[in-house]
Design a protein around this nucleic acid. Structure first.
Length: 109
DNA sequence: TTGCTGACCGACG
DNA sequence: CCGTCGGCCAGCA
């Protein structure tokens, strides 16, 4: 609806993720209307580090709650640390009680 | 301009 | 249960 790029839209949704909540790439993709292009969401995250805005990419995980992008986040377990710091329990690179902390943009917005 | 790659997802064997 | 493949679209060499 706007001239915003696909990435811009992704960033906007990610920044809307409430504190202590996480979402999945597919959920964002579906919300944007580009269901199936979930890879683009992850790609946007990859470019998010080049973006000057604060993108809480650590709140975005795959559909099973696994921190797939933790390798790209900084090369360390920073992603897990950030999530735990927000109250999100993480176990072995996987979000515990994922269904409880899961935030679906298409459902809650 | 063409082609490869990519932090995913779902289906198939 | 696990490994493999295709599809989706945008950025970069």
């Amino acid at each position: 609806m706007t001239a915003l790029s696909f990435f811009e839209r992704v960033y906007d949704v990610v920044k809307l993720i409430p504190y202590g909540r996480v979402t999945s790439y597919g959920a964002i993709a579906t919300y944007l209307g580009t269901a199936g292009s979930s890879r683009m969401v992850g790609w946007a995250m990859n470019s998010s580090h080049t973006h000057s805005d604060d993108i809480p990419a650590h709140r975005v995980v795959n559909r099973v709650g696994v921190l797939t992008g933790k390798n790209h986040f900084g090369g360390s377990d920073v992603m897990q640390e950030l999530l735990e710091a927000e109250g999100v329990q993480v176990d072995n690179d996987q979000v515990a009680h994922f269904e409880k902390v899961f935030w679906d943009p298409g459902r809650e917005l």
